[in-house]
Nucleic acid binder design. Structure first.
Lengths: 354, 354
DNA sequence: ATGCAAACTTGAATCGATTCATATCATATC
DNA sequence: GATATGATATGAATCGATTCAAGTTTGCAT
């Protein structure tokens, strides 16, 4: 024992023994120093230093205390996706802001892992989850409920019995479409996000539209419709195309859309990403924005490419969404259904119809 | 006991008892199902379902197994800073890529926390750390060593006994400055990152330069010097200004720099952030880039503003840095001192001197 | 001296799982 | 029929701390 050459990790119990105090006291030295007399505290600390004790082991502490001091952003996607997507990045930064004030950490967690992965919402050591619902929220909500830890859903729409954070997508979309009609546009088309996660894209009819399951998509669509109808544009004849928020599906949608005669004078994109892909596609065809077509986006995320005209869009407070959601989990914000403000930002991608 | 109304969490032991097997067997059902006969496995699973067992509790598992399935990016900064800084974001995405293949998660950790924060490199439950050394690495390295978990340092320069990931900053800086001299520029000035973390900015003399502690800064400076000297530019007379990579210090540096007569024809910025601030400052003065001055940056990070001319710069593989560092921690990449390639990217912010 | 409250310590229980050496049992081999 | 083999199952030890009721001291006023 005395001459043991094997390097062993020092435990709190070893420190306590070396200092000649109980383990409870040793624990107090590290966790509530004011409870321990100065002399004893120093004796224990000295013993700890002498033995090379590294401080209370986080895993043991987490097991016993039930706190991990970590909150996680969960999405139905890879870790890389979350860390790469501009929306998620800003959401994460917002969560980080809340964590910084509470002294917690932030992690990224896929809802489930494939293969032998051991890191998912089911296995993550965390105190709570922020659910990023970029699609029907049911699955994520079910998983989170099953895990039995607190959670807050972002962009899920209202959920009974759960805390949620969102904007009024319908009103914001109404403002977006109204901006265009106010500029005199009457031949408009909508480039939508996915209505259902079934891999179907392209032209959308009324049946399909009624299937929209994701709150955000459904509400934005409703807002566009209301605004156009309010301006006496015949909604059923407005072309609506479904895209996957990526280059391929936007290109395909535009290819089909632009063969319509007469061509629309304005495009309503349900995201800035879609809007920018559209602008790129149009540029490839020699069409200018807003000269030939006006385009309005949604979200107000910076352009990773740094190219193209500044986008007219709806600014939504993404960081604030994260900060509120994280704050709820950390006891900084009253839980509930929080609706944050969004606003129209007019830049250079829209102009008066000719 | 039978009529206990209190909701209690079900433990593995409860499941084992209910299924009439040992706890060891119950554990095997969840962790090495192939070790357990089908009949028994189903019996245990049924008992688990009946009791509403949520699966092995992560905290208990982490304590016993010593694995957290999480790796963390550590910086001497807030969580928000890391999640906001474009360099860190990409580093994080690279780490995430490695995590995705290994089935691990990724978190952000400040080196130390202020106040009562419980989340720092000392307390995080993780399997290893990626150290983002944007300054002298000593402190971070010491902290990581003290914590006793594996770590990999990014941008620390070589460190004996530790794994590191970096680019050849000196060679890359040489290429940057050579690009300018090859275009005929002879009156150049350097906008540097911080040489020492003491809050001193502005004009840098030889003494100060010799104090450069951060490997990246030191090496880039050396590269610029070598390249300029190789083109017979008198290095001691080249103005070097230290900035904090932010608007204020860049503005101040340029204010002083541009009063020199004759004015430089080219600026060498040690980061794209500095370069963009410089361009903005010059634009405010009615000076155009590259018309009036050429500017070269470093890093190749996208412009969050999406404005200004496309920047000539050095592209460094930031995601790859993260992926390699993470990979080392996860056993996907051989540990060691890895030097990744960087390359000159010529865009529109530099042109031939007149 | 005595009584009492306040301050400090202790010890044992507990958090929830994993691990591995050993025991059991049925089958296959000679 | 005896023995070796492989597949399964067991149980106790262990990971490393926190917590709290109960016990012991100390300090102070009377």
């Amino acid at each position: 024992m005395l001459n043991d050459v094997i390097m062993m990790t020092i435990r709190l119990a070893d420190v306590a023994r070396a200092a000649g105090v109980s383990q409870g006291t040793a624990s107090n030295v590290f966790n509530r120093p004011e409870q321990v007399s100065t002399a004893l505290r120093e004796r224990v600390l000295a013993a700890a230093a002498r033995l090379g004790y590294l401080g209370p082991a986080p895993a043991g502490r987490a097991l016993r205390s039930g706190k991990a001091h970590l909150i996680a952003l969960v999405a139905e996607a890879d870790v890389v996706y979350v860390l790469t997507d501009p929306f998620c990045q800003r959401l994460l930064a917002g969560i980080g802001a809340a964590c910084d004030v509470a002294g917690s950490g932030v992690a990224v967690v896929p809802a489930v892992t494939g293969g032998g992965g051991r890191w998912s919402m089911e296995t993550a050591i965390a105190d709570g989850f922020v659910l990023f619902c970029n699609d029907e929220p049911e699955r994520l909500l079910a998983l989170a409920t099953r895990r039995g830890l607190p959670f807050v859903a972002v962009d899920s729409g209202p959920v009974v019995g759960a805390s949620t954070v969102r904007i009024d997508d319908r009103a914001a979309a109404f403002a977006a479409a109204t901006h265009l009609t106010a500029l005199g546009h009457r031949r408009v088309a909508v480039l939508s996000l996915e209505l259902a996660p079934d891999g179907r894209f392209g032209s959308v009819d009324a049946t399909r539209m009624a299937q929209a399951r994701h709150a955000v998509t459904r509400d934005r669509l409703a807002g566009y419709r209301d605004a156009l109808a309010a301006a006496s544009v015949d909604w059923p004849s407005v072309p609506v195309y479904e895209t996957a928020n990526d280059r391929g599906t936007v290109d395909a949608a535009l290819g089909s859309l632009l063969s319509n005669d007469p061509r629309p004078t304005a495009l309503i994109a349900m995201s800035d990403v879609i809007a920018r892909h559209a602008i790129r596609h149009l540029a490839g065809l020699g069409l200018s924005v807003p000269g030939d077509l006006s385009i309005i986006g949604f979200d107000d995320v910076p352009d990773p490419m740094g190219a193209g005209p500044p986008l007219t869009t709806i600014r939504q407070p993404i960081e604030a969404k994260g900060e509120v959601a994280g704050g709820m989990l950390l006891g900084l914000v009253e839980p509930g259904d929080v609706v944050l403000p969004a606003e129209l930002v007019v830049r250079g991608s829209t102009e008066r119809a000719r």
